[in-house]
Design a protein around this nucleic acid. Structure first.
Lengths: 205, 205, 205, 205
DNA sequence: TATGAATGAGTTTTCATTCAT
DNA sequence: AATGAATGAAAACTCATTCAT
């Protein structure tokens, strides 16, 4: 077959894009490397020139897809003109919204199919997200607008709860009304658990 | 090979026990049916005499391993001589403690290995646990000792958060001190999120 | 389970009846011994008390289902008040008609599924049918109403042709009109190949 | 094991050839894919690189084995310098002769073993053969050298009869004498059933 | 960089049959 | 006559990965 040489970066991106689509359609486990290369139009071996393994591809794909959010997350966190509560609100909205986006990587999967990928995504997300939020919480405590004791642990519990909750309710998020209702619940837990004094944060759309 | 006939219940339990051990050692995906039967000392066919598939075995095993807790959970929930706060405390302690026990099914796994089983267990656990807790929360609201709005959602978020948290910190639960520290965090979230008036619940050991 | 003892013949017949139904529904290969015993309501072992093997069951079942026709076939063949042509006609009608009946043992099968059974049936049928027809043909030659040289071979070819043809067209035999049309073709071949002088035989309905 | 790369076409042919031999020796059902690859000396996976399934291999093998005849069949059918009777004779000889050759795919089988393959071959053969012969018969009717009514059906019956007959007598075809005897029978049926005016066709060797 | 043929271990599942009771 | 638990061989297919070119 004709040998088509491309810019390596381009080629790699091509593979990752295709994989991302296939993974979200059929689940990591159910997508064979051969499926990916077939769709991209390259040889089996080419894949292994760019990635060490299928697992490696998954990692890179997930990593890449979190990079965007992470950057924005950090941007917010570093703002000096926002108080902790404002930051928290922004950061949560961003995460929740993009979470919905990220969802497209997993939404078609019934549970059995592909927990691997979903878990990994969750985990990686938590890894990026937790430090940022923790930072904000610390700021909030210093500023006196959050009041809580085991703030590290509580923050972790809250984030994990929200993540799990979002995962559980994704299928139900059809209309704005439902979304807002769910968001209200999240607001409530956060507000109370962080011991916010003033008014609560607002996440609805 | 010598044909050893046993009481069906016994044989089935034998298989399930062995499977439980192997699953926790190597992960569901990494245990072949052939591994199980080899260890039990029966023929491959015998396995399929008792279970429709490997998946079926997993379901039954998990189900069985939750049965005990579920019963106790319900026992507590139905008590008439405990107020909501007492019930909640008991129920959480039970879950947390047994959760530690349940851990033996997953403790040896590094993360990559076996999300299938773990997720399924989580899910099944949540299915059993959530209704019970929800009931208690409703009771607490009626009794006036819990104060919160979106109680259904908040309860769900809290439970998922705790589950996720427990999962995340299992490797760290070495000494009583650490455990108590983590428990304190859980107490704090719960107490605040449910808007408990009086003193908080206590989960430490 | 309750042990229900029955008259052996009855029990055996019960199994054969059930098997016949299942075979015709799903094909010999696709019916497991366990399916049969389950439906009959006896134990696996009971099956092997009555039959040496699954194959044995098939043979006996087919044999039994051909016995009826064979008897009738012989009855006709032995008549002394019919000439060869009349006999041939009767015999063919009988076979064709019962063939349609026999069809219920194979009609639901797509070709891949179960040629074993069908071939065996065909073969057994031919074994019973051929001698009878051959006999009639010989009579016809003596009587002078059939004129042909290699009568043994020609008879065989004709019968095999008809069998194959019937098999091929079974799916099309919806209405009387179609049937008659097909029968006419059979009449034509027979009449010509056997070199019948007088008018032809008639098989339509 | 040493990795030996070959021209794909060659490798595929190699597999098909080996399969053809094994199938004819032991029957399709009784040949495992592992048998084939072992004999060819390639890995199991290699097989599935070239064929989608064992069934697929069978189809391709049979198809290939009919290709030669089919081409010759058509060549004859399209001749303009032969009358229908000549064509029919040529076509039948070709089929009968090659049929004997084709026999190597099934000759070692006792009846139980392998109807799948044989039926499929028969069917595929009929599919190719029937249209050609039908065409010739139509030509013959136009030319006036064949006289019959339900020519389509009659042709089908004749071909199926001959096919079945050939199958039945293969084991007996030892010497030229026997063959000629059987051929004579075929000639007779054909000649009579098609209502040939002039002298009959001749198939002997 | 890229190809694509080749690898081969690994897995679930089916089912006819046996046999101790 | 009947049970039903137990057997175990067999078999098709998958797919991540390798490697000679």
């Amino acid at each position: 077959m004709a040998r088509i040489t491309k810019d390596p970066e381009e080629r790699k991106a091509e593979i990752m894009n295709t994989a991302e689509v296939l993974f979200s359609e059929k689940g990591f486990r159910n997508v064979a490397v051969s499926d990916i290369v077939k769709k991209v139009g390259v040889a089996q071996g080419t894949f292994y020139y760019y990635f060490n393994s299928k697992e490696d591809l998954l990692n890179q794909t997930l990593e890449r897809s979190l990079d965007g959010i992470t950057q924005n997350l950090n941007l917010i966190a570093e703002k000096t003109d926002m108080d902790a509560q404002q930051k928290l609100q922004s950061v949560l909205r961003l995460a929740l919204l993009s979470g919905v986006g990220k969802q497209n990587m997993t939404e078609h999967l019934d549970n059995t199919q592909d927990n691997d990928m979903h878990n990994k995504l969750q985990e990686k997300f938590h890894e990026k997200f937790y430090p940022v939020v923790l930072n904000i919480v610390e700021q909030g405590i210093k500023e006196g607008c959050f009041v809580l004791d085991s703030y590290k642990e509580v923050t972790q519990i809250l984030l994990l709860g929200i993540q799990g909750y979002m995962h559980a309710i994704y299928p139900c998020l059809k209309d704005r009304e439902t979304v807002n209702e769910k968001m209200k619940a999240i607001e409530e837990v956060i507000t109370k658990a962080l011991g916010m004094k003033r008014d609560s944060i607002h996440l609805g759309i």
